[in-house]
Design a protein around this nucleic acid. Structure first.
Lengths: 336, 336
DNA sequence: GTTCGTCGTTATAACGTTTCACCAGCCTGT
DNA sequence: ACAGGCTGGTGAAACGTTATAACGACGAAC
């Protein structure tokens, strides 16, 4: 049973295909009486528009692509949810690609998105793909960068002030009476990590506190937190910090585990703060303080920037929205 | 700058469009010499196939749809990763929809997928959509059910033996010396929950242990765990259980938090076991024992079943793969 | 020396929409 | 009465691909 097409609908309703299309897209006014007839025919035949044909004609898809670094990190899925929610407001849909931090996968997805002529693309680039993104834009798919703005003034972007986030975290720890801070995070090669660490270090310096000890690890996942804490606990007592600032919440969770395992009390012996404010931080055995990044709102704003470019192509007025991080205080940083 | 199409490529390479298509799809042999010329033209023009046109002609898309219940639950994203990984082996791509347990969203996505003529669909249905799925299949998009097999013998499916999972959990708790079990979970209306609870109850009965106290809550998230534990701790001491079996790991995490907050030691005073074995269970302050569901493998198998139907349409030989759950022992259920 | 196959290639017909230029009425104001 | 403007509708062209029937050239087989 070949599925019904507009022609069948038109025939049954006794109108032309053009009219059916007008009913479908409300592109031109159509008499309520005929509209009703057409609708009846559609229902009767179970007609469903063939999107490929539509797309071919129109030259562009109604779906937007998003490429995230790691779907198993709730921070990114929260962003994606913001995007998805916003997109449904615009009556468009989302196709999600997970790069898993792999430049190869990223290229594969770019190929796919280009073949699909996606209406637009949201991306946190991992490889060196700026040229590729320019091409995509030239061909009618605008691009907005998420959480990466360095050297990319030629694209709109949303990001968070990571330096400020680092400051806030360190200030909070110092405010609550801690004196010796450690930063546990992934490699400084990641801009975000470097910024957060830098903010914390400067804050400590400004308060004439002891310098922040920075532990660089090569992962942004829980094991990094475990490893980091083990290193800290191996230090001579005098050098042991009384507060740990984790580069993200996954690391903080790992840190909490290692501390608990070692019998170190949180927050009594050591305070702990994370970054991102994922739900698992709030739901940890000891609720973990965190620097909240407005993930959902970032997704929404990125989508709005993108839609603006989609609906008014050719603009070169690229906007860069920088969100401010927010301190969320929980039990893990209660005063000593 | 209109993007190049096959005609442009053909012109530049001095061949016909048919030949270009053959080069693109290797559908017919083409002389290596000409193939090289065509490839050169493609590269020079930066030609990228328009997938909409291809799809229109061929009648079917190269992408597969998946609808998951809750992207913020790692169990489902793990399944999705299994699907994605497998699909790239088949050189196809994935479009992911998040229903968030909402029947309305589910319908929206079904419309979308139908318009897109997706090659196939993986779904954990939330609403009553079996008829809709039949129609999708009739129109050329096979459907495989994930983690839902009840009353749906007319679709292939993958699922896990939840009853057995419940048994295993309860037996493990009893084996390690616990005598009074409580089950904390979402509503029994969810088949999985009812099965897991049933398995646990039967296991206790078989061992002549005290009957399992079942706490039904209306959520499958962390707050349910907190609430459940609060209810348990409010009981007179004699009735207080010495082991908690949570319907999933999110609930277990909430439970661990409530227990910690109340100063109840895990596992010394109360043992705790979850379900799904998400990474956050392993990374909790007290590593939480869990019943592992092979999420990635489920995704892979579901995809393979789907691909089989896609590549050989018209078969009515529906298969039902049932995975066995596996006990993962961690600190939270060490003997008292 | 004709016939038959095979290989590589070509031209052309779909696929199902949307858009666009046109048209038939019909009302309205002068 | 007639130009002009709405309103609701028509029909055909175009979007870029793949599939298919047909074809020329060249050997092999008889």
């Amino acid at each position: 049973m070949a599925t019904a097409n507009v022609r069948d609908v038109a025939a049954l309703a006794g109108v032309s295909v053009g009219t059916v299309s007008n009913v479908l897209n409300q592109s031109k006014p159509v008499a309520p009486e005929t509209a009703k007839r057409v609708q009846a025919a559609i229902d009767k035949l179970g007609f469903v528009r063939n999107d490929a044909a539509r797309q071919l004609r129109v030259g562009q898809s109604r779906t937007v692509g998003i490429m995230v670094l790691d779907v198993s990190n709730p921070f990114f899925t929260d962003i994606a949810r913001g995007v998805e929610d916003t997109l449904t407001d615009f009556n468009r849909s989302l196709i999600l690609g997970n790069t898993g931090e792999s430049a190869a996968r990223e290229l594969t997805y770019l190929d796919l998105f280009e073949e699909q002529r996606v209406a637009g693309l949201l991306i946190t680039p991992v490889g060196d793909v700026l040229a590729r993104l320019e091409r995509l834009r030239e061909r009618g798919s605008p691009v907005v960068l998420v959480d990466r703005h360095e050297n990319a003034r030629s694209f709109s972007s949303v990001s968070v002030d990571d330096y400020r986030g680092g400051q806030i975290a360190a200030e909070h720890l110092l405010d609550t009476g801690r004196t010796s801070l450690a930063f546990v995070g992934g490699t400084r090669a990641i801009v975000q990590v470097a910024q957060r660490a830098g903010g914390a270090q400067d804050a400590a310096r400004e308060r004439d506190a002891r310098p922040v000890r920075v532990l660089e690890l090569d992962s942004m996942r829980a094991e990094a937190g475990r490893l980091g804490v083990e290193q800290l606990l191996a230090l001579p007592k005098a050098q042991r910090p009384d507060a740990v600032f984790a580069a993200n919440d996954l690391i903080a969770l790992g840190a909490l585990q290692a501390l608990t395992h070692a019998g170190v009390r949180v927050p009594d012996d050591i305070a702990l703060i994370g970054y991102d404010d994922i739900s698992f931080a709030a739901n940890a055995a000891i609720p973990i303080s965190s620097i909240r990044q407005p993930a959902w709102e970032m997704g929404r704003t990125a989508t709005e920037l993108l839609m603006a470019e989609i609906e008014k192509p050719g603009t070169t007025d690229y906007r860069h929205v920088v969100f401010q991080p927010e301190l969320i205080v929980r039990e893990s940083t209660a005063g000593p």
